[in-house]
Simulated assay, not measured.
Amino acid sequence: MSAVELVCASANPDKVAEIQAILGPAEVVLLPRPSTVPEVAEDAPTLEGNARLKAAAICEVTGLPAVADDTGLEVDALGGAPGVRSARYAGEQATYADNVRKLLTELLDAGALDASGRTARFRTVALVRYPDGREVAAEGVVEGVIAPSPRGDAGFGYDPVFVPVEGDGRTFAEMSGPEKHAISHRGRAFRALAARLAAGT
């Protein structure tokens, strides 16, 4: 069976590279987002809603099937924050380091000092939108805890402070790409999405 071609709605090169690494070119070929397409306002109240906004916008412009995802880090001690605001937690122009710094500060302010009080999960929703309006979506979740300080140089976003429960104590940023993708939220979401696409659902 030939690979499915999808226009990738993300403008984040780290995320695009990770998605392609997870899927592999044999299953899904990601076509680049047209450079002329402006940023899509991610103002939906849910991860699925934001993924839908992005995929629908790219699909409408290109006339081709488009794939988008949205990811949130849900920290229990912070009432599920940053959640849908994860990428913009420290402000609209926040860097990865800005967001991590704010997260660690908020946890200290909340009195969450040991691992039992720093439980969290990453959640990703991946969604494909077709020109005829059909959609296929899948979700991936991984449980973990927030480390007291960043560790590791790989990955991006909150990876340096997220320690997955199913791992060996390392943060995502201390793992190789394949190690991370095997258990990550994004890996699970996109493998589930690829399986649904292959099954024609």
Results as ranks from 00 to 15, higher is better:
Val75Asp: 06
Val141Gln: 03
Leu108Arg: 15
Gly140Met: 12
Lys15Leu: 06
Ala120Ser: 14
Gly111Arg: 03
Gly117Ser: 10
Val145Glu: 14
Leu193Pro: 00
Pro148Phe: 02
Thr201Asn: 14
Thr124Pro: 03
Leu113Phe: 13
Glu179Ser: 10
Gly72Val: 00
Gly177Glu: 10
Ala51Thr: 02
Leu53Gly: 00
Phe122Cys: 02
Asp159Ile: 05
Ser116Ala: 14
Pro34Thr: 12
Ala26Asn: 11
Lys180Cys: 04
Arg123Tyr: 04
Gly80Val: 03
Ala51Phe: 00
Ser116Tyr: 10
Ala192Thr: 03
Arg188Cys: 04
Val61Trp: 13
Gly140Phe: 08
Asp43Trp: 00
Ala66Glu: 03
Val163Leu: 07
Val16Cys: 07
Leu113Asp: 11
Ala97Lys: 11
Lys180Thr: 04
Gly133His: 05
Tyr96Ser: 14
Val29Thr: 15
Ser116Lys: 12
Ala115His: 09
Ala94Gln: 10
Gly187Ala: 10
Glu39Pro: 10
Pro38Arg: 09
Lys102Arg: 15
Ala81Phe: 03
Pro82Gln: 11
Leu73Glu: 04
Phe156Gly: 13
Glu92His: 09
Val75Trp: 09
Ser2Trp: 08
Asp98Met: 12
Phe122Lys: 02
Pro164Tyr: 12
Ala68Arg: 01
Val163Asn: 06
Pro150Trp: 02
Ala26Asp: 15
Pro65Met: 11
Leu64Asn: 08
Arg33Cys: 01
Val161His: 09
Arg196Ala: 15
Gly111Glu: 09
Arg186Met: 06
Pro13Gln: 07
Ala138Val: 01
Met1His: 13
Ala147Leu: 03
Phe162Leu: 10
Leu107Glu: 07
Val145Gln: 13
Gly157Leu: 05
His185Val: 05
Arg85Leu: 14
Leu53Thr: 02
Pro25Gly: 07
Glu106Pro: 02
Leu73Trp: 10
Leu107Ser: 09
Arg121Gly: 13
Ser149Ile: 00
Arg85Cys: 08
Lys15Phe: 05
Val125Asn: 03
Leu6Ala: 10
Gly200Tyr: 12
Ala182Gly: 11
Ala147Arg: 04
Pro65Ala: 07
Glu139Ala: 15
Ala137Phe: 05
Arg191Glu: 10
Ile22Ser: 01
Asp70Gln: 03
Arg186Leu: 05
